[in-house]
Amino acid sequence: MVIKLLKEVTILAVFGIVLFLVLVWIGAFELLWEWSRQQEGAEIDKLFILFPVLAFFFAIFLWLQIREAKSLNRRLQISNEQLKISQAQLVQSAKLASLGEMVAGVAHEINNPLGVINMAVDMSLIHLEQSKYDLIEEHLRTIKEQTKRASVIVSHLREFGRDTGLEKQVDIDLNKVIAKSFILFHKDLSNRNIEVIQQLSESLPLVKGNVIELEQVFINLFSNAENALKSSRKKQLIVRSFRRKGFVVIEVEDTGSGIPFSIKSKIFDPFFTTKKMGEGTGLGLSISYKIIRNHKGTIVVESEEGKGAKFIIQLPVSKST
């Protein structure tokens, strides 16, 4: 603050000096003018006086412009920073929204092992009273196995919920990312009688990217497919992975209701949703689009109303493979 004040005072002082010099110039010119009038043949152009005056005002104008430009630049920098923060927050909230949409399936996934554990404990206590130790051992093994099952889900949720803003890009096997994406709601899919068909290439090259972000893309696509399949007779979710030239291609296809032509161009727009108020954020596909674009890839959709939808993702093969 003090430095800024000193700067302003210095600039004003400089201008004061310049103004003083201009006044001295005008004074000197008046003297010269008087002298030239007294001397025969000596003439000074009257416009000559205007030069330092114009120069002075031009300097002030220039200074004001520079000041304005500097302040604009500063404001632009601040806005840029704020935009970056907002974008990161948007990505994070979209991720949490995806989590919210999955929460029912996840709760089911966790309550199942908890239910088994609770019953196994109850049975152990009964068998303890009856001194049937061999049966207790069996219950303990069940508890151990179910605890592991629940902890896989919890650790995965924790990993997914983490802020990945500063995550480095690494070489990734997309087949593994697809498998991980299914952890959180494969049970939900099977409860809805959705048949999952995975046609994954066994020799899929690696891509460079952020695991959590790419997983978010697949979760969004699977979740959309699940919704589209709700009222379909044929309930299939087909996931394919293969190599096409320098790209890894992932196709996520469903036999659901499809996308009407009228909204096809809007589906990647932020906040565009066909879901009821409170059921969807309309951010899933727009964030997915942004993530894929950040990975130097493309995502497109092929769909006809009533004939399902196919999302095609292309990501460049990692140069280190």
Partner: peptide
Amino acid sequence: DESQILKLLENYLTM
């Protein structure tokens, strides 16, 4: 559809 739940409930109620 959870085999473990089915087994534990069967054991308990049979008991």
